[in-house]
Design a binder for these strands. Sequence first.
DNA 1: TGTTTGAAACTGTCCGACAAACGGACTGTT
DNA 2: AACAGTCCGTTTGTCGGACAGTTTCAAACA
Lengths: 265, 265
Amino acid sequence: MQEHGFSRIERAPAYRLVYDAIEREILAGRLRVGDPLPAELQLAEQFGVNRSTVREGIRLLEQSGLVERDGGKRPRISMPHYLDLASSASRALILHMVTFRELWEASMVLEPAIAERAAGHIDEKGLGELSRNLDAMEAEVARIDSGAPADVYGFVALDRAFHEILANVCGNRVMALAHEPVTSLFIPAGRIILPRLKTYRRVFDAHRYIYNCLAAGDPAGARTWMHKHMDDFRRAYELTALSLDTSLDAASLGMVNGTAQAHSR
Amino acid sequence: MQEHGFSRIERAPAYRLVYDAIEREILAGRLRVGDPLPAELQLAEQFGVNRSTVREGIRLLEQSGLVERDGGKRPRISMPHYLDLASSASRALILHMVTFRELWEASMVLEPAIAERAAGHIDEKGLGELSRNLDAMEAEVARIDSGAPADVYGFVALDRAFHEILANVCGNRVMALAHEPVTSLFIPAGRIILPRLKTYRRVFDAHRYIYNCLAAGDPAGARTWMHKHMDDFRRAYELTALSLDTSLDAASLGMVNGTAQAHSR
DNA sequence: TGTTTGAAACTGTCCGACAAACGGACTGTT
DNA sequence: AACAGTCCGTTTGTCGGACAGTTTCAAACA
């Protein structure tokens, strides 16, 4: 209940101003991708700040993916590859304790749409990538069937890779980006489901059916099989007797009842 | 076709090692969210490096969202809010010259699904937010109708906010994250369409219909209206005589023909 | 008990310095 | 002409020290 009420005076630290200024130059195109960043001393002179301050600003640019460093060379302006950035977002999501239901619902929306489009856009190169992925998964399934202990981490990685390839060949970069958190979350989800239910072959079969539809250029078939695949995904999770509304990281830590302690904050 | 092929020898700079070390501590839970980061000098001692080096490492943490600074206070460990991180990815996407067709296709998949879910999950608070957004947009439309010059930037921001609120109240954080690049891209797209076609009122009406369905708890209606709204979006773009396959940033720069120079790299 | 005050701790910024690595030019050898 | 060796200016990575302005925290005070 202050009398006058000045607006909060905000003084961004100098290193952040440096960051903002350089970012603006890049976004405006005055610094182009591939160009080397001006030398730190030169920047310090231009901005009228110390070199240390410039360096701290450059660290921000570095982590945001706008400049790339290779060895001790001059850092260069770079185009952050969108999937790289999104994956750190997904890491944050995992920390935020997303539930399986949320993951599954999003998958049901995105995956069939992606599979459908992929059937119309995939080329030889994409088919080759998928084919290699299938071969690797088939080998792993055969190994497991023969009694060897399952490499859950490796299998989940292959599963994720399959869906990621699909997103990248569907001819729509916005959809690929939107889809990224889903693939990332497949990993914890897969690690929960697979060791308990051993549905390795079932996953592989679904992927193969989808692949066949892609190779045949059959969008409707690809969508249908992906839909089934995702339905399987939910059913498998339900069979683990875990609640759909348990957070994935709680589940992966083995807290099977819904009484996990409240999230801080 | 190299004979032996040594693996690349990599020497990470010390500030990155500092970053890695602190990140590990956070992800392992030994540094907990909300805790203040140890003092720079103390960290410098522990790591055996100079304070400047520690500071550069902290800048990386800062930009990755793991550390939050408020004024001159001690920085605190923070949980990166997923939407914050995703937005930098979208910025990268814009640079990557996504086409309107990609944006629109993704919108057609995500927006109706989100609207449908929002109708089942929205609460009083969410309805209030949407209502305030609608009021602001209505005022702006009335202002424009009365002959005032349109504040395109402000209007587009309101438009984006509407869709963002919807995503945040749909009860699915994965979908909200997946949706984020779409809202971000609404901004350049809206700035292209609106000044040329002046479809302000049409946008407002669509939002109002959707809002009414949400308030009435009508998922099917919300989906249907959102679908129409997105269809309008495409039609409006087509009316600008821009190709659907022109990249958004080329279009916003006024390069209307498809002969924009090839993208570097 | 609640407020004020003052010292300690800490961050933001600057300065100066040096080793290591890189880029390029120049040179001598084969 | 191709190549290895050498030198040198530039630039980054790291260090030590310094100081002003804030925040924190507890003692002193009302």
